[in-house]
Design a binder for these strands. Sequence first.
RNA 1: GCCGGUGUAGCUCAGUUGGCUAGAGCGCCUGACUGUGGAUCAGGAGGCCUCGGGUUCGAGUCCCGACAUCGGUACCA
Length: 493
Amino acid sequence: MSDKVRPRILKGMRDLPPEQMRARREMIDKIRIVYERYGFAPLETPTLEYVDALGKFLPEADQPDGGIFAFRDEDREWIALRYDLTAPLSRYFAMNKATLPRPYRRYQVGPVFRMEKPGPGRYREFYQFDFDSVGTSSMLADAEACMVMCDALEALGIEAGEYMVRVNNRKVLNGVLERVAGGDTLPPEVTHQVLRSIDKLDRLGIEGVAALLGPGRKDESGDVMKGVGLSVDQIKIVVGYLTAESATRMNVCDELESLIGESAIGREGIAELREIDTALTAGGFGEDRVVFDPTVVRGLAYYTGPVFEADLTVEIVDGSGRPRQFGSVFGGGRYDDLIARFTGEKVPATGASLGVDRLLAALIELGKIDAEPATAKVLVTRLDKNLTAEYQKIAGELRSAGINTELYVGKQGIGKQFKYASATGKTVCVVLGEDEMGKGEVSIKDLRLGDELSKEIGADRKKWLEEQPAQLSVPRLGIAESVREVLARYSSN
RNA sequence: GCCGGUGUAGCUCAGUUGGCUAGAGCGCCUGACUGUGGAUCAGGAGGCCUCGGGUUCGAGUCCCGACAUCGGUACCA
């Protein structure tokens, strides 16, 4: 028997190696710049919250809802890891509403936790990057949210045409449902079912959704899915709404108007969309980047007005050659009732949330970000351990010159040191021995060039080694400049 | 959660109708090469064959269960 501990990792969680850490940090930095350019300011809240603040308490069961990581503290109070950044923002705003400016605009990035089935690109711990405007009901805030989404994606190298921000309004949806109910309101659970069915549109197609709204449908595996049970006429209204497409945002509004009829809430929603269109147009955001799309619902129950979602429209092929769907990477909307849970006072708010890890995976697949593990590109090797003091001096000089430099601190010979250098992503090795010392020189080895040239190394390795075409001798005094020159051959930025 | 596929070395996979010491490629390590990674050659390490039961003289191979993983479906604040 063994008393050793078996190393394990929690389901749906992962360790991030250096190249992913660096890629993610780079991505977050670029987005932060955009958020700040619009005046959003940083906020950080704890990862743990009381369950009631997250709003996921199940009173009947005296237990938190499934789907979150929860436990009890020493006072038997339920505590949970946050599952998004919006609920903590609401809590924070409610606690500080007396002193916070209105609108209060903050951004926040950090890990959130959900106990769901993990899948490719789906984890139980992942990063979200949110920005929100709290305390204004102006549609300018919603329009701006769309602009920020566009700017953020474009800052990451995803250009107009490779993504699309799609906007809808829950109020319009409610107006349609009002018509479905014949001027009445549908029971909440029916509303919810209808929304869920619409949400499956991209997967099932319009016929599939129609079937779901009516009697239900069978999928290929023979599984029966219960339908909502609407009548043919009712389904017709919903389908007509979902298929309302037009060339321009204004045309979509016109078309929706005729579908909505007299519904007051629906008309309000359309008026809001028109305001958003005006702001977007004035801001220079055309139909190539932001469209109005009646099929956008967003699962979240708390949205009360405009909802928006950014999808990648470029085809992404994964390593094994099959196309990968990244779906919505960025989404949000208006949630005017969320903060009232704490304050009683209605505080309008709107914002959006970026799925950092999912978008990062897409960026890597698209080659828009390089997953570079090395923080230092230069390794000062230690050919002759007696010259260590000199090596330290060289490393120090390079660092003073602003060049990230690693001094080899292992104990192995020069061959292993070069191996180590390429394994850790170095591009330059500094080599110095008695020979160079005597001549007042140092050797600089270009590992990448060596990589290239080694393809034609052939059988005569000895000769190749003597020539060392990827290596050059430079004066010891100008070392920083020389290293910088070699590095410059590969600097991509 | 439900349905289906798959679980053999770090990775990708072989493994004949159940039958001797479980294999390959890549990677890794060591050496040829005492001042040079990538080439070549030679060697080497590394396997509770996912786990637990069962059938059998005998199980990596068959049966049951668990777990993991992948895909579909449901849920998704």
